[in-house]
Design a protein around this nucleic acid. Structure first.
Lengths: 334, 334
DNA sequence: TTGTAGGCGTTATCAA
DNA sequence: TTGATAACGCCTACAA
């Protein structure tokens, strides 16, 4: 069961622990003979340095933590992919926690990662209706972290998307196509993104003198199934909106699924748009593209700068643009 | 920067390190007064035990590693979700490595995880055309691990899918619907699943006295884009197959995408089937369903049994069934 | 060029 | 009921 240690190697080669350690760490000042002897023994016995013992002394565990909401969602797995790649480039391993939108899991896992002395954390926190004690604690402990999204009043590194503007863009696109009765499907209550998108939507409507009816807004959609529900409600509705904005493409997929099986045509009978512009979408859905993969890489890049920095640099606070990608899920009413 | 330690707590409370440690670990035999003093101090200073130091003594790091090929693929992120959930139930944290089908990354990351003394590993290894030294090394070191898929000649815990039979099922389904010219899109060369599915396909064809033409098999599709390529080739083809079996649903999506934009109708002009039965699929694709989420949970369950077991138990070797889900992407030629 | 000693934060053992 | 000490595996000084 036991992994071989430096002490074992020392015993085997008849050298001192420090000598073995020195050779293994490529320090200079050892004879070729000792060097060879150590390396050979290490190789032969499959020695893998105990990083965790090493981490005790050396300040770095070469590990970062990543906390997201749902690994199953393309939005988050693209971010994960970006983070992972940059981490690998730095020789780092990443702890993954998919909180499933459960705040307690998020807190527990962050604490566990702190316990495991990660060198830094990337967190896509639940941003609404929860407390941020675990995040503040990170700052207090001076543990490097960077956030996806910002927390009002917390000065730290973060990357966020301009959800408000993205939402204004789609909404205006619909309005420009003559839509007046526009519905909206919000995401999780704990999602800042959802709040901003909804706000952008309302503001854009208002700015065009359009009003929205309460029946046309659907709340708290999370999974594809919720989208199907919304679709079914829509189908059963007498006074249907002519267009619907979905919190994300996954929800939109659900709506499409429901509509297709009910014979409701998109965009003929209903115009539909979403957010994320996910790849796994064969339907020509007009969507707001979000640079998730790039964001993942950027989050990691910023985190590593913070981890390796000598003097405390300015906090990096980046807002990434969202871009409307027009396809053919919106009907022109003109 | 520094996290508070037990020694700090000892100094603060005026107690001995061992006393503090004892209280913190809920050992019996301490006065209520000491107990309270320690707990209060710990709380006040936000003490988080250094798991990595703890791991030095206690044999367990409460960490497992998970190595998959592509976190972006629904197949793997469902598995990841299952693993994650079971790990969390046990209070474990999981290291994630998405190798990107790169064998060197897989080997490097496994080694890194071993270095970090994970209590166990779940690996979905590249299974064809590569060496398994890193896996054998695990066994030699008696580090618990469970595999997704089996390695011939290696006795270990594993969970695998019956890809061969799944493939036979779809192929026969197509044949039963009167298809004779059936094409096939293989996955990565390093994928055992791909090999088995292809073999199942060929055997089923053979068993029905059907032959396959080389032009109708497309190799090494990996991403959605590759599916699009295949679709485009198909469109340009004179002697097109009447049906196409794709290595997975993502590839099938690509084919659908290509066909839709070229005006080729499915199933009217081409019957199409895939594997995985992914959720994010609005097209009514007939597909071979694979219990990925359950497999993830099972993999983790088996791993934890192995980690916590007292005596060495039998190796668990499970083959999970694949099940054909018929929708409407196959046209009946009768 | 190599060896000895001490420390990192924790737990376990044994003594007080 | 509490405290001192060693040990886990490694690294860094410093001494030989």
């Amino acid at each position: 069961m036991m992994n071989i240690t430096i002490a074992d190697l020392a015993r085997i080669t008849g050298l001192a622990k420090s000598t073995v350690s020195g050779v293994l760490n490529n320090k200079s000042g050892f004879s070729e003979k000792t060097r060879a002897k150590v390396l050979e023994a290490a190789e032969k016995h499959g020695y893998v340095p105990n990083e965790i013992a090493r981490g005790l002394t050396s300040k770095f565990t070469k590990t970062i933590g990543l906390v997201i909401k749902d690994i199953t969602n393309p939005f988050y797995n693209r971010i994960t992919k970006g983070v992972q790649e940059v981490a690998n480039e730095h020789g780092y391993t990443v702890f993954l926690c998919s909180s499933g939108e459960n705040h307690m899991v998020e807190v527990t896992q962050v604490t566990a990662m702190v316990g495991k002395r990660v060198d830094g954390l990337i967190i896509a926190p639940l941003l609404e209706g929860v407390d941020f004690d675990h995040i503040y604690e990170l700052k207090r402990k001076k543990i490097p972290f960077t956030l996806l999204g910002s927390i009002p009043g917390l000065t730290c590194d973060y990357v966020q998307f301009d959800d408000y503007n993205g939402s204004i863009q789609v909404t205006n696109h619909l309005i420009a196509n003559g839509h007046k009765k526009i519905g909206f499907v919000t995401g999780q209550r704990t999602s800042r993104a959802s709040k901003l998108r909804f706000q952008g939507f309302k503001d854009a409507m208002m700015a065009s003198g359009l009003s929205l009816s309460e029946e046309h807004v659907f709340h708290e959609a999370k999974h594809l199934e919720d989208g199907v529900d919304v679709g079914n409600q829509l189908i059963a509705m007498k006074d249907r909106p002519t267009a619907l904005i979905c919190f994300d493409d996954v929800i939109a997929m659900g709506v499409i699924k429901a509509c297709e099986s009910a014979g409701l045509k998109i965009p003929e009978d209903l115009s539909l748009v979403g957010f994320d512009d996910i790849e796994l979408m064969i339907f020509p859905l007009t969507s707001v593209s979000i640079p998730t993969y790039d964001a993942g890489k950027l989050l990691a890049k910023i985190l590593f700068e913070r981890i390796f920095e000598e003097e405390v640099a300015e906090y990096r606070q980046v807002t990434l643009d969202e871009k409307l990608v027009v396809r053919s899920s919106v009907k022109s009413l003109h």
